[in-house]
Amino acid sequence: MMAYMNPGPHYSVNALALSGPSVDLMHQAVPYPSAPRKQRRERTTFTRSQLEELEALFAKTQYPDVYAREEVALKINLPESRVQVWFKNRRAKCRQQRQQQKQQQQPPGGQAKARPAKRKAGTSPRPSTDVCPDPLGISDSYSPPLPGPSGSPTTAVATVSIWSPASESPLPEAQRAGLVASGPSLTSAPYAMTYAPASAFCSSPSAYGSPSSYFSGLDPYLSPMVPQLGGPALSPLSGPSVGPSLAQSPTSLSGQSYGAYSPVDSLEFKDPTGTWKFTYNPMDPLDYKDQSAWKFQIL
């Protein structure tokens, strides 16, 4: 009977010793046993002879290597770790002494450095960015050149030099007046198309007034536009458009034309069986010896 009264063996659950049927240790109110408190290391007290050895090595170098620390530790009968900690504390003490010396050398008012006064946003004049500046400075420094007289040679050079070769001289006033084509001369031969040399188009003023001019072949195509416009036809070669000034309004060009419109200028042929003959000019830059190549039959 006494065997049943004795408590059973101890069981360990999660490293906790349980005594038989008792489960009081598993209750929430019972805390787990805490780790033992780490003991504080005792402070090391250095003797005068030990301090002399350490100070002598510190005077040589503030960062001794492990071999120098072990050698000193053997002399003063201390572990190497204590020597390492002593050098660490000695360097910190040396830095603190240097900072105190710097503070003593500075004057009393030198510690508080005078800061520059901050400028207020409204006091300083700042350039306004509302208006974009002129990058080319046209509004201040540029002045347009004065327009020359209508009959000045410089204007003629600016007008005619675009179309004339570089080897030719500017046309005088008398020749510029001949550039304007007359109405009857352009409409006299509506079906004849003559190819003149390129030099005649640039230099010869008579080429624009003769039936064999460069633009005589364009007349049949330009004249039928007159009834559609409801007024006189516009002429690209009329009046002052080739003269001194090219800047004319469309209203000033509306009254200039080749001449009176005639039914002869239409595109319809009077004789459907007729042929169109292209007159060959020996001055043509295209060297075609066979003139029969310039004739064709309209079917």
Rank of each mutant, 00 (worst) to 15 (best):
S161W: 14
P272T: 02
P205V: 09
I138M: 04
L136G: 08
E268T: 13
R90C: 14
R37M: 06
V242N: 03
V72C: 03
A189D: 00
S266D: 02
R119Q: 02
A189V: 11
S152E: 02
P190D: 04
L78S: 12
P285L: 14
R43N: 14
P135L: 07
L74P: 14
G243M: 08
A233P: 04
S188F: 11
G230K: 07
Q96E: 10
G109R: 12
A293E: 01
A59W: 01
Y280N: 00
K277H: 07
A68M: 10
A158L: 15
P127K: 12
A92M: 12
D130P: 02
S199I: 15
Q175F: 11
S188R: 14
F269A: 01
Y221M: 03
L237Y: 02
Q96K: 12
L253R: 10
V30A: 04
A196G: 03
P211N: 02
T155W: 15
F278R: 00
C94T: 09
S143F: 12
E71M: 09
T123Q: 08
G274F: 10
P172Y: 10
Q100H: 09
Y67D: 11
K295D: 00
I162W: 01
G178F: 13
G110R: 08
Y280I: 14
G109V: 04
N77S: 08
S235M: 10
S249A: 04
F201M: 02
S257V: 10
T44L: 14
P133R: 07
S22A: 05
G20W: 15
G217V: 13
V160T: 00
L267E: 00
L179R: 03
S235Y: 12
K88Q: 12
P211Y: 10
Y11W: 11
Y32C: 05
S223N: 02
S257K: 10
T129K: 04
G178I: 14
I76D: 15
P250G: 03
Q100G: 10
Q50M: 06
G230E: 03
T123F: 01
K93L: 13
S206L: 12
P149M: 07
A200N: 01
Q228F: 15
W276K: 00
V157D: 02
L16T: 00
K93T: 14
L237G: 03
Q28S: 05
Y32V: 05
A166Q: 00
Q62N: 03
Q297I: 11
A92T: 14
G243Y: 10
Q103K: 08
A92S: 11
K118W: 01
V30P: 04
L54K: 13
K120M: 01
Y288T: 05
Q50N: 11
G109L: 03
G137E: 10
Y280E: 00
P263F: 12
S124I: 09
A17G: 00
T194A: 07
T273Q: 02
S245H: 09
D140L: 12
Q100E: 09
P263Q: 08
